[in-house]
């Protein structure tokens, strides 16, 4: 298992995610307003913003779930607007709505997603064992996912999203509703993945989590209001922590839910 992750099939030279003037309008409403940024391989990129700021819309465009209205973006070397299906082979995704099947067992879920991504049966079997061992879920392999505690489900969902060794993993508020200790454990998994070269693109509401990111962008009203390392942002806004940075930026927002 340890050797399998070193050579990523989606590895590309240069930035893994690149957006330029990426825009999404719904009728007269501009949800994402010409955002531009780049994310390097192995980076943990935090995507912050109040509800309604356009985070999820932007992320859905990058995942190939939503066609952009304007601008260009590429993920793992493929164009978001024209080659969404090629992108889907190279990314992992974990949504804020919980994304494993509650009525399948742990093993059945892993097998299903492995199969859907075209992994061979022997590969699936090996990865299942490795994954269960790493998460300490070996005894729960035949338990229904619906019966697991939320924190375990989240860790499992993240590991399943990495099953096919994607170049980028997109996480949409992955740690909602769990305690700080469980969240910290979840972040250990993120660091492990990033250390293996996987780019992590994460939206979150928790500003302490923003501190863990390599770089953080903050969206306000569909625009990217700030983008820097957590230390850089705090310095720029003369703030003690990310919470303060966020409040300064978000206070002027018009589009909130």
């Amino acid at each position: 298992m340890s050797g399998a992750a070193t050579q990523l099939p989606g590895a590309v030279a240069g930035p893994v995610i690149r957006a330029e003037g990426l825009t999404k309008t719904f009728g007269a409403f501009t949800a994402v307003d010409a955002i531009s940024f780049e994310v390097a391989a192995g980076e943990i990129f935090g995507f912050l913003g109040a509800n309604g700021a356009g985070k999820t819309t932007a992320m859905r465009m990058l995942c190939g779930l939503l066609t952009p209205s304007g601008g260009v973006a590429s993920v793992a070397g493929f164009d978001v607007g024209r080659e969404p299906e090629a992108i889907k082979r190279r990314i992992g995704y974990m949504s804020q709505k919980f994304s494993l099947y509650d009525d399948l067992t742990v093993r059945e879920n892993i097998r299903f997603y492995g199969g859907v991504y075209g992994l061979r049966t022997t590969e699936i079997r090996a990865k299942t064992e490795a994954l269960l061992g790493r998460l300490g879920l070996a005894h729960e392999r035949d338990a229904l996912v619906g019966s697991l505690p939320l924190g375990w489900k989240q860790k499992l969902a993240f590991s399943v999203a990495l099953l096919h060794d994607p170049a980028v993993v997109f996480l949409d508020e992955p740690t909602g509703g769990v305690d700080p200790i469980t969240r910290r454990q979840f972040w250990d998994l993120l660091y492990e993945a990033a250390a293996r070269g996987v780019t992590v693109f994460i939206t979150t509401h928790y500003l302490d989590e923003a501190e863990y990111c390599d770089r953080v962008s903050i969206m306000v009203d569909g625009r990217m209001a700030a983008l820097d390392t957590p230390a850089g942002l705090k310095q720029q806004f003369g703030a003690a922590d990310m919470n303060e940075v966020f409040l300064q930026l978000a206070r002027g927002a018009k589009n909130t839910e």
């Binding site: 190939g64 779930l65 889907k88 082979r89 995704y93 949504s95 709505k97 994304s99 859907v116």
Partner: peptide, 13 residues
């Protein structure tokens, strides 16, 4: 409703 369809939509299915 459960949201799993979105998960399937980001796979190469």
């Amino acid at each position: 409703e459960i949201g799993t369809i979105e998960q399937l939509n980001v796979t190469p299915i």
